[in-house]
Nucleic acid binder design. Structure first.
Length: 291
DNA sequence: ACCGCACCCTGAGCGC
DNA sequence: TGCGCTCAGGGTGCGG
């Protein structure tokens, strides 16, 4: 579940392996909805191109190529973007973890879930994009081409202000948490950080967005920035399938206050953290701190 | 315009 | 041991 901090961590760590290098061969899996640009076209477009820079917009990574075209990557739920030189037990199935000595967990061998393999002219480490559940996306944008996906994104969550949040929430009847998850409103927030930010702000996730006050909007915006920046500092949350490009685990999962802590005591007041389902997704909150 | 929901997918974890 | 079931959820697109 890579969200903004995990995508940003990925960007920072994979950038040195992409920027300045010239793509040589490109290997892909078979055409599927994972490829918004068909693999054959992707291979043609990327071959021989030099990566100029790697940016992030919301949860998208955007690689700028030397012909002015762009490569969009989205990690979805289980996307993993990493170097072929990395070693991490997270690249193994859970059933295989632990049974191998560390030295045996040497190299990751591309499997059927490794949808994109970038080989470079300098013959250094390759870059792999793996995504078991294929909720991620790959798209190539021709020079000057607009991207509906990027254009749809709201303000990057790191830039959000209370005033903007307040304005966006007026006349909205959805739960405030669902508003935070709406990428057209705020780009980059996912389930973990929405829950954590609402806890930090003391606002219950079920509150109708339109009833959130100006003051609460300020608190949510500042809690969001705090939580996201802190998570980036710690290298993101390493839970589920997330792996950073160099294999190092993040540590933010140890700082969670409510996410995936159902039934455990609130770290502030001791009340049991509640889990409910909101918009098909689980939401966690402290019933006492978030009235 | 807005909202709720189904859907895409596979692996982990559970009960039996 | 293994089977079948449920759950996880980012984003899109549909019907109401």
């Amino acid at each position: 579940m890579p969200e903004l901090p995990e995508v940003e961590t990925t960007r920072r760590r994979i950038a040195p392996l992409l920027v300045g290098r010239t793509i040589d061969a490109v290997h892909t899996t078979a055409p599927s909805y994972f490829f918004l640009t068909p693999p054959a076209a992707l291979r043609r477009a990327l071959g021989g191109r030099r990566v100029q820079r790697l940016a992030r917009q919301g949860k998208y990574l955007v690689a700028r190529l030397d012909d002015g075209s762009r490569l969009l990557l989205h990690l979805g739920m289980t996307g993993q973007l990493f170097s072929s030189a990395v070693t991490s037990p997270r690249l193994l199935r859970a059933s295989a973890r632990g049974s191998l000595a560390p030295e045996a967990q040497s190299r990751f061998t591309p499997d059927e879930h490794t949808h994109l393999r970038l080989h470079f002219r300098d013959a250094g480490p390759e870059v792999f994009l793996r995504d078991a559940r294929k909720f991620g996306k790959v798209q190539w944008l021709a020079p000057g081409a607009a991207s509906e996906r990027l254009d749809r994104l709201g303000v990057d969550a790191l830039e959000v202000t209370g005033a903007a949040l307040f304005a966006a929430s007026r006349a909205r009847s959805v739960a405030v948490k669902n508003l935070l998850l709406d990428q057209a409103v705020l780009a980059g927030v996912g389930n973990i950080y929405a829950d954590e930010a609402l806890f930090g702000a003391g606002v219950r996730p079920t509150r109708r967005a339109g009833r959130v006050t100006r003051d609460e909007s300020e608190r949510i915006a500042s809690a969001l920035r705090r939580v996201l920046l802190r998570s980036i500092e710690t290298g993101g949350s390493s839970i589920s399938d997330y792996i950073s490009p160099d294999g190092a685990d993040g540590a933010y999962q140890d700082e969670r206050r409510v996410y995936a802590r159902e039934g455990e005591p609130c770290l502030v007041c001791g009340a049991r953290v509640k889990r409910i389902v909101l918009g098909q997704r689980s939401a966690h909150y402290c019933p006492r701190c978030q009235q």
